[in-house]
Every structure is written in structure tokens, then in C-alpha cells.
């Protein structure tokens, strides 16, 4: 069953088109990565999903319910952690966490104490004295302590230290084990890579790539390092081979995923000394999309 269904969602702010026919589905029990450069429309998409702004056209549903008309019913079953967190200066972290849990109807929470311990968090301080990372912890602890079915995270670890980032990842794994669904918008591609079953890349308000990581990898080229005892002269002419460079007697190039077979057959005649290949990282995939389109990273 799909937890989130987004079909042809467009959003215009005046003449500016922020989202242009964005579609994707998040299935139950799935951890879904949502990535894209600054200003691509990630937060706008999340705000539509949370029923805070209304889509110009298209249909968005969570748990099969319309995100705008049935926001309350949906919000009872979701937990949201924003990326840019401001809290109430004169309240303590503990008070704010309890407020969130009460509003959700999840108070008292059995998980709260454990979560505070796990994130090494001191709830007795006033919010104005927390650093960015600690403010994020307030929202993360409230979210992980609630008993939601869908968790929406908007760049949740941008202020956390590596140790806490790991705690976050473990907590997401735990959600997954319990069959919960997660939508994770992030800039930290290694995090998305290690956590997510499926990924959607958005740019200038359009989805440009969507699917499982292995699917995506399949469509793209792997990097190969090769050294042979017999000299190859015409490597760049071979079928499926691109961007050939030579570094200390070692060839470095890209190869199309579906041309491996013919390549192996041919290269075996050159007395291979060493061959290393690694599949593209999410970062490679991400960067390639921009370089292909003229390399404008600001989107």
C-alpha cells in the first residue's frame, strides 16, 4: 500500500513555478530519500504534504487521505522534523518535547527517557541557550518518542555531530524494522545512500530521477581503474567506454553498465594486471545530472 501518493503536483508562486508536475509514491515500510540542490522545491513539496500550502494543481495523498482537506486525520499519524528550527526562547527543551507529545496525544511517552539518553540531551535548559544541533535534538526526540506511522524529516542532521548523526541513522533503522515509513529529505548523500530504499532526485521543481539505488546505478556508468601488461592504444574508441584518462600507467575511465560483457571479452586479450571498478555513489549520480545539464549547481 502507498503511504504517500503524489500525482502531478504543481505549485506556482505568482508567475514563478516552484513545482512542475511532481509525482512519486512512498510505500509502507519504506525509507524514501528526497534529494536535490538548494531551491529545487524539496521544502515546498514537504509543505504541501503537511497541508501548510495548497498545490496549484495535482493530487497529494497520505494514508489515502487528501493532504489539504484531511490534514488533521493525517497529522495524528505523522511526525515531522523541520530543517530550520526555531524554538520558544523562554521554555525549556523538556517543556517543548512534552508539548509536542501532548498535542499528538502521545503523552506520556514510554520512549521519551530512552530517546533523551540516546541523543545525550539535557532537557532542563531554556531553548534560547541551545545550539543548532541541540534544537534539532528537541524536534528529533519528540518525533522518535511519538507513535507515528509516517516520519517526515527535512534535513534533520544538518546541525548534528557525526556521533549524533549515527544515533539518528540507528533510530531510523529501528523505525524501519518496526514497519514504519520514512520520508527523508537530505543533503548528506552518504546518509541517504545508507538509509534509503528508494531515492527521488528533484531539480528546478521537476523529478529528474526516481527509483531504487540499484536501478539508478544500472542506468549509469561505473568508474574503472585498469592496468595491463600489453599496451592499449585505442581505449577511447571501445564501445561503451567514456572519459578516458591516464594516471601513472593506470587507465581511469567510465563504462556503460550494459557494455561490461563486450569490454571484458576484449580486455582479456591485453594481459590484465589489475582491474577495479566501483559503482557510482549517489554523489556521482547527483553530480552527473548537473554536469549533463550544464553544471549549474545552484539549480
Amino acid at each position: 500500500m502507498s503511504v504517500i501518493e503524489l500525482a502531478d503536483i504543481s505549485k506556482k508562486f505568482g508567475k514563478f513555478t516552484a513545482l512542475d508536475a511532481v509525482s512519486f509514491n512512498v510505500e509502507e515500510g519504506e525509507v524514501f530519500g528526497f534529494i536535490g540542490p538548494n531551491g529545487a522545491g524539496k521544502t515546498t513539496t514537504l509543505r504541501i504534504l503537511l497541508g501548510m500550502i495548497q498545490a496549484t494543481s495535482g493530487e497529494a495523498k497520505i494514508f489515502g487521505k487528501d493532504v489539504w482537506d484531511e490534514a488533521i486525520a493525517i497529522h495524528k499519524r505523522i511526525a515531522y522534523v523541520p530543517g530550520d528550527i526555531n524554538l520558544w526562547d523562554n521554555l525549556t527543551g523538556g517543556e517543548v518535547i512534552d508539548f509536542f507529545l501532548k498535542m499528538q496525544g502521545a503523552y506520556p511517552s514510554t520512549k521519551k527517557e530512552a530517546m533523551m539518553k540516546r541523543f545525550d540531551f539535557d532537557p532542563s535548559k531554556k531553548c534560547k541557550n541551545y545550539s543548532k544541533g541541540n534544537k534539532q535534538k528537541v524536534a528529533l526526540i519528540a518525533a522518535f518518542s511519538s507513535d507515528a506511522d509516517l516520519y517526515i524529516f527535512d534535513e534533520p542532521t544538518s546541525g548534528l555531530d557525526p556521533l549524533m548523526e549515527k544515533v539518528f541513522q540507528e533510530s531510523v533503522h529501528e523505525l524501519k524494522r518496526n514497519g514504519k515509513s520514512v520520508l527523508l529529505s537530505s543533503h548528506i548523500l552518504s546518509e541517504v545512500e545508507s538509509l534509503c530504499d528508494k531515492v527521488c532526485i528533484i531539480r528546478e521543481g521537476r523529478v529528474i530521477e526516481s527509483g531504487t539505488l540499484s536501478d539508478m546505478r544500472h542506468l549509469t556508468r561505473s568508474t574503472v581503474r585498469l592496468s595491463t601488461r600489453k599496451e592499449i592504444n585505442d581505449l577511447s574508441e571501445w564501445i561503451g567506454v567514456h572519459d578516458v584518462k591516464k594516471e601513472n600507467d593506470e587507465w581511469i575511465f567510465l563504462i556503460d553498465s550494459d557494455k561490461w560483457n563486450s569490454f571484458i571479452t576484449r580486455v582479456s586479450g591485453f594481459d590484465v594486471e589489475k582491474i577495479e571498478s566501483h559503482p557510482p555513489t549517489l554523489e556521482d549520480l547527483f553530480m552527473r545530472h548537473y554536469q549533463d545539464d550544464g553544471g549549474d549547481l545552484d539549480g
Binding site: 509543505r47 503537511l50 497541508g51 501548510m52 488533521i72 486525520a73 497529522h75 495524528k76 505523522i78 515531522y80 523541520p82 530550520d84 528550527i85 526555531n86 524554538l87 520558544w88 509536542f100 498535542m103 499528538q104 496525544g105 524536534a139 517526515i152
Partner: peptide, 12 residues
């Protein structure tokens, strides 16, 4: 200051 956003994500 984006505080309303968090509140609005709750069932209200």
C-alpha cells in the same frame, strides 16, 4: 520564524 510550521504539523 518557522515555529508555527512545527505546530501546524501536529494534529491541529
Amino acid at each position: 520564524e518557522n515555529r508555527l510550521e512545527i505546530i501546524q504539523s501536529l494534529p491541529v
